[in-house]
Design a protein around this nucleic acid. Sequence first.
DNA 1: CTAGGGTTAG
Length: 888
Amino acid sequence: MHDNSIPLHDGAVANILRACTGAKVDFHFVEQIHAKIIRFGFCTSPHFCNPLIDFYLKNEFVDSAIQTFKSMGTGDSVTWVAMISGLSQNCREVEAILLYREMRKLGVFPTPYVFSSIISACTKIDFFDLGEQLHALIIKWGFSSELFVCNSLVSLYSRCGNLTFADLIFSEMQCRDKVTYNTLISGFAMRGLTEKSVQLFEKMQSESLKPDGVTVASLFGTCASMGDLHKGMQLHSYAIKAGMCSDIIIEGSLLNLYVKCSDVKTAHKFFLDTQTHNVVLWNVMLVAYGQMGELLDSFHIYSQMQIEGLQPNQHTYPSILRTCTSVGALDLGEQVHTQVIKTGFQPNVYVCSVLIDMYAKHGKLETALKIFRRLNEDDIVSWTAMISGYTQHDMFSEALKLFEEMQERGIRSDNIGLASIVSACAGIQALSQGRQIHSQSIVSGYSSDISIGNALVCLYARCGCVMEAHLLFEKINPRDNVSWNGLISGFAQSGMSEEALKVFSQMIQAGEEANMFTYGSAVSAAANLTKKNLGKQIHARTIKTGYDSETEVCNVLLTLYAKCGCLNDARRVFVDIPQKNEISWNAMITGYSQHGYGRQAIELFEDMKRLQMMPNHITFVGVLTACSHVGLVEEGISYFKSMSEQHGLVPKQEHYACVVDVLGRAGQVCRARSFVESMPIKPDAMVWRTLLSACTVHKNREIGEVAAKLLLELEPKDSATYVLMSNMYAVTGKWDYRDRARQLMRDRGVKKEPGRSWIEVRNSFHAFFVGDRLHPLADEIHQYLEDLNERVGAIGYVQDRSSLWNDLELGQKDPTAYIHSEKLAVAFGLLSLPNVIPLHVMKNLRVCNDCHNWMKSVSKVVDRTIIVRDAYRFHHFQNGICSCKDYW
DNA sequence: CTAGGGTTAG
């Protein structure tokens, strides 16, 4: 036609261009036609130009299309649709939307074609609100039963997560096609509603619609998230028979299937067999090695893809960064971060959320916050990553503050977000806030969510709500060992150790598998109750199950033995820890300290520094206590100074109290006083109590009165305050003042906590009060005590009656009625236990002076080590002397 | 002239 100079005919041009669109025709050929159209003056004619625009847009010549469109004037409705859908298909969705606005302004009526295109554009860039507004217009214009329009609406609601609505539109459609099914199938699959997705696939087949490549690709996704390799492989065969496997998207979804079903071998083989230059395949392999924790292989993939000319994209970075996060390779993660910046992916939400998570998880919360604040998007994952980062680093109030900010901004949290904020509440025992979030989670439809359920169980247990914790625990179905651990650790941490151990034994009986968290909590509960034998049994279990090499478990075992007074066992655990961390060192130092082994504690601290371990606040409490035990005054002061000068630590009240103890024990009461007066923070009750007890030992009434006065102001309800005060007056001979202190206590209605001692004999605990005769062996115990008193009297022990607390005790006619509980416990222990093992006695208050002297003598006459844990410290009585060197 | 699919984060 061209050669014979036959004039242009619109139908012919349209047909030629349509033919060009599908075939790979040289652009210049089309340009020649375009030139002819212009030359013959048809450049405003929709008949000629619409096919031209369509050709340009389908072949990515967007600018040529826009140019053609601009020269046309208004065009017809087909022109607008071609432009709008074409722009949308070329990732220029915003321009498509703007063009739609212009079209409406010019009064051009929208057609179903326009609506399906524009809804699709909105869906692609998450303009869901606009999409919903357009839905209203669709109803108004009467297009709501058009197949293509409905398909685009199903897609819109699927993508924005409103599957209920998508399903509703689907069910109200009079006729559906493959696209309708495919759209909803992938919608369900993406939201993890795998069962619904499979059901729909079956329904589709019952309506004789043959699955195509799109269906299969979506279903591979469904199988992948269900972990159903078998069904996935059946589909794979189907895809091979149907000849779909060369499809680039099928390839990606198939590889993903094998990776998610943990068949990395098949996946890798498949990956090597693929021929396409497809970045998705590399990204999926990155996920494969990441989920196995193979950092080296991940980085090999990451660099190899770049060598082969593929650039990392917004999917690549999150995968590699997540692997860096989970294996703890922060340094490599930071390098990837620089590459993110260089390649311009920093504004991407996905990339940012992983960066936030990485920095937050590794304690770099300020860096995480910077990225988070710069992101400036209402992205729930980033908020959650930030919140849980705070929670993981015990910054619970920061977590709660951020959560409040999030709610003020109107961002709705999902199950993962709610679970992490509940954990934050558990961390600071914010019970009422936790309850509010509990109800919020029910309202949001998460009442059967296991992550929230587990977090709530932990919250209620930590807040001591035994009933609620158990009720919630019962409701979780199916339970996992996180549920059990939450209950056990919650009770253990809220001091309900008995309850924790009860649940632990139920867990074992239920055949549930305990892990390091379970053992950690159970051992810590046993340690709090100083249940040495039970602790040993749990220790045996950890050895059997191999958890005895976990540092965290070892640290608690060490503490258990130290708290039970078995320092040798504690030491053995410490020596055998394969990878000691700061907590291990702290626990051992503290253990030595509490038992009065100051030298060993200080030596260990020096070792710790040599090994470049970072001492923290707890380390220094141990070290300073050790100094006070050994009487290392100047060393103690210099260690105290080193806290801020060398280790960047700000001393807390307990450190000041330790220094006061160091000075007080050495008899430097005046120096202790001026030390307290020079404190940069307001001294708390602990500091004054320490000073007061130093004054009691060294009979310094002047300073003692100052300390007592301030202590009375700070803790007027604490009986220990009055006891200390009264003792201070007693030792300085001010009997009238002592009586006044006691009177004051009575007037204020403060009751002395009854003294109580207990001892473990053959797996059961025997507890005693003052003058107790309730024990079945009471007669034998008292008889034995009389013998014992004769024997200690023979080596010079004389009872010190000033230690007896009240007139009642002093005025008792029956002298056996005021025998202190620790004496009874010791007598019972000596009667009941083989005479080689040391006695371990626990007491809830401080041991009194008389009992202390008595124990020293007893340890000598019966030749036994007696270890007493009172409210303050351990006393090891051996051969007539005590490890506390008579200062406590 | 219109609609649907794969890989990434807490």
